[in-house]
Amino acid sequence: MANDIPEDIAEKAAIMREFGRLRAAGEPVPTELQAKHVNATNDRYATGPEPGERIPDFSLPDQEGRQRSVANLTGPNGLLLVFHRSADW
């Protein structure tokens, strides 16, 4: 359910495109559009596994191409795992 596509995705896309166009052109973003963009992006906010639950196992390459898993990422006091949007934009 958390990964379902919302019904108003086209409406949201229009808001995001307009926001992106203004930003790329270096033009000011009207406050109302800014607010709509924040709301469209943050709708149906999902936060995944709850405290006490085990996280899904994974194996992903790091910036050097080394394959990393939960086991080899975790320190003696645990792991702070940060999901973020992008390092590219």
């Binding site: 995001m16 702070l80 999901f83 934009w89």
Partner: peptide
């Protein structure tokens, strides 16, 4: 379960997560 589904395919941000940080214990539990 934290994909941001508000972002349509074709948009640059399609595929980003909702930003969550987890503190995970040695046994893999949150």
């Amino acid at each position: 379960g934290i994909l941001n589904t508000n972002i349509a395919a074709g948009l640059r941000a399609h595929g980003v997560p909702h930003p969550v940080e987890y503190l995970i214990a040695e046994d893999g539990k949150v």
